[in-house]
């Protein structure tokens, strides 16, 4: 099975229908394991029990950027290869990415209040993630504003690729500027600085949330394909009535 085979929406619907129950089951199992490990992880010597917030904050922060990355690849698919499912993938991912980014911001604020003494600080990392969230909302508004999906797709693809400039800014903001947000502690040169007691639950939760995204994304793509079928059939119905 190659990406070309999946270019056929009907074939994609058939394959995703078979894969989705397995993905959903794997997500539930991993989330259960991750939540159990998070609940019984030891307290950090500095953060105390608030370290538990990291087990949901960090996966959501990673996914906020990962989803935009997925949308950027899909946008290339729309503009360069004109893959029929590329704009379906980009459109379906946007609300899910916005939700993960919202969660990263909320849980970050809830961690920041007891640890930093403030819910919000206009530092480079927090501000660039807020901009990412606003870009998700802008993209969703653009999709809704243009009725014809193929016309909306090209504009959204360009906006997505321009917005991808924000991804390295988010990633390296803690290195380039003096921020309140701490530097990278998991994905860094020289390996993770986290103890295994925190690293393992964090990685399990990160994989679980990534599986959750893939599951929701496939389901949302199926819905988008069905929505487009509804639209084309309604147009056919309208033209039959007019004739």
């Amino acid at each position: 099975m190659t990406p070309i085979d999946l270019a056929n929406p009907t074939r994609f619907l058939a394959l995703s229908a078979r894969v989705l129950p397995w993905l959903a089951a794997a997500t539930v199992i991993l989330l259960t394991i991750g939540l159990y490990q998070s609940a019984f992880a030891p307290d950090d010597y500095q953060q105390g029990a608030t370290v538990k917030i990291m087990f949901i904050h960090v996966p959501n922060a990673w996914l906020s950027m990962f989803v935009w990355g997925v949308m950027s690849v899909a946008s290339l698919g729309t503009l360069v290869w004109r893959h029929p499912l590329a704009d379906v993938a980009a459109k379906a991912a946007a609300p899910i990415g916005a939700a993960f980014t919202f969660l990263a911001l909320v849980t970050g604020s809830l961690w920041g209040r007891p640890m930093w003494g403030t819910y919000w600080e206009w530092d480079a990392r927090l501000t660039s993630v807020l901009i990412l969230f606003l870009m998700y909302l802008g993209l969703m508004a653009l999709w809704r504003a243009v009725e014809d999906p193929s016309r909306a797709a090209r504009a959204a693809a360009v906006l997505t690729l321009v917005g991808a400039i924000n991804l390295p800014i988010i990633k390296f903001s803690v290195d380039w500027w003096n921020t309140l947000h701490q530097p990278a502690s998991v994905m860094r040169m020289g390996g993770s600085t986290l103890d295994r007691a925190f690293l393992i639950p964090l990685l399990v939760m990160a994989i679980a949330f990534t599986l959750l995204f893939i599951t929701l994304h496939l389901a949302a793509m199926r819905n988008e394909i069905l929505r487009r079928r509804v639209r084309s059939l309604q147009m056919m119905q309208a033209s039959q009535r007019a004739a």
Binding site: A49, K52, I56, N60, V106, T107, W111, P114
Partner: peptide, 17 residues
């Protein structure tokens, strides 16, 4: 499992998620 003095922040985070 004790969540300490910041239990409300931890619980709110998980509830929001």
């Amino acid at each position: 499992m004790s969540l300490g003095p910041y239990a409300s922040f931890i619980m709110t985070s998980y509830a929001a998620a």
